[in-house]
Simulated assay, not measured.
Amino acid sequence: MLEDNFEEKKLDYIQIILICVSVALMIYSASYIYFYYDYNDLLRHFPENYNSDKESLSPNEIGDSIGGTLNPIIGFTGSILTFLAFYIQYKSNKQQVDLFKKQIKNEKFKQKEDLENRHKITLRIFKSLIFQMLSYYKESGENLQKFILLEKQKPLEPNIFKFVTDASYVYFKEVNFTEIYEAMIWYFNLDNNHFNNWEDEFTRTLTKIDFYDKLISELQIKYLEHVKSKTKNLNEVGSELDNRMGEILSDEYFKNSSENGIDDYFRIIHNKNKEGVQIKEDFDGIDFFDLQQNFFNVFIKSLMAKKNILEFLNRNKDFSERLKDKEFVRIMENLDVFSKLNKRIGTEIQQTKYYVNNLDEYFNSYFSEDSKQLKSISDFISKINLK
């Protein structure tokens, strides 16, 4: 642009020389006529010139004399002026062509500049969305880690897995990937970039972004299935326990025993003692782990003790005859039911452990600080360093 302005300011020496010569010739012609008329006293009198024979000349002959002298000069001056007129027209046309070329050049430069700006904007949007999603993945990983810790500490409680919300992936899917790809080509083809394998990294990055979105959705679905199954199983255990305990509490054997776990049943299930007095003000629900350890384990032993007593009392009877004894049948049925309830709680603990082990693998592979997946995404985006 500076060179163009410099060229416009350069002097046109040809035009100056032609003008100077033309002006000089016109001045010379005018001076010649003036001095001729003045010398022959023609400015104040009619022309009375004489030839060499002292004969008077007519005005036409005087004109012919002046014309014969000045015509070559005037003709030459006219030729110069004509050439000057054509030259000025040529220069004007050339300036118009040059101006048109400059306009095209400026328009192309502006288009190129606009395209570069559009590429920069596209890449900035792309980077911003990727970094926002990386933050979302890291926050999801932190919540996953907290949930895993809760599940390990309290496997029989409906622990909450907090899923954060983020719209960056929704916006990311609406981006025109053709424009992103063109912007990538523009950026990585710059002189200061030499990443020959950027296309492979770009494709892998897009694949990983899509994978993480599906992974988090899958974690949410599995969590809902897990907590729903856990809640359903434990609620069924609690409901069946309440149904069975009505019959148990009417049995004098268990009512009068102090070491059969009945006190723990009231404490854990109803937050009351045998007399119906509330124990805790901040009771937050049934602790099934406490129920298994301090009620089922003790109470099942009490059921086994009564079964042994009944078997001792009926030792002279065979098993088929014992089954006719309603009390023996009832104690066998309760022993079976309570054993199954206890087993369901144990099974739920094992299922939770299996579920947590899977979550641990997910966390270590995809969400931990040492995750190669997140690092590879971050490394690729960091290569796009716009100024």
Rank of each mutant, 00 (worst) to 15 (best):
F76T: 10
F83V: 15
H119W: 07
L234M: 10
S56K: 15
V337A: 12
I16G: 04
K317I: 00
E225G: 06
N273R: 06
M245V: 02
I248W: 06
L25C: 05
E55F: 11
K306C: 03
M304N: 10
N49V: 01
E252S: 09
I180C: 12
I121M: 10
E8D: 07
L206R: 09
D191T: 08
L2D: 14
I345G: 08
N260M: 05
S140V: 12
R204G: 05
Y28K: 03
E252D: 14
G238A: 13
K10S: 05
S135N: 15
F380V: 12
C20W: 11
K343V: 01
I19G: 02
L84W: 14
M26G: 08
N308L: 05
E369R: 06
L310R: 00
L57M: 15
K274F: 13
K54R: 12
E116W: 07
Q15Y: 10
S302T: 02
L224C: 06
I300A: 03
N364E: 11
N176A: 00
G238Q: 13
I160W: 02
Y171L: 12
M26Y: 10
E55D: 11
L323N: 14
R267T: 03
L219M: 15
L84C: 11
R344P: 04
N260Q: 07
L2P: 03
T203Q: 15
K272E: 14
A85R: 10
I19M: 04
R124V: 11
I269G: 04
S368P: 01
F266W: 01
F254C: 08
I160F: 09
V23Y: 12
D114Q: 12
M245P: 05
Y169G: 01
K138F: 09
H270L: 15
Q103R: 15
F266C: 01
W186I: 03
E142A: 07
V298H: 04
N5C: 08
Y13I: 04
I17L: 15
S257D: 15
N93S: 04
E179H: 08
E201G: 02
L150S: 07
V227E: 03
I286E: 01
F211N: 09
Y253S: 00
D4M: 01
I17N: 10
R244Y: 06
I80R: 00
S128P: 03
T82K: 09
W198F: 15
S92M: 02
S371D: 05
F289L: 13
V175F: 01
N233I: 06
R118Y: 03
M245H: 00
D53G: 00
H194F: 11
Y366S: 04
E113F: 15
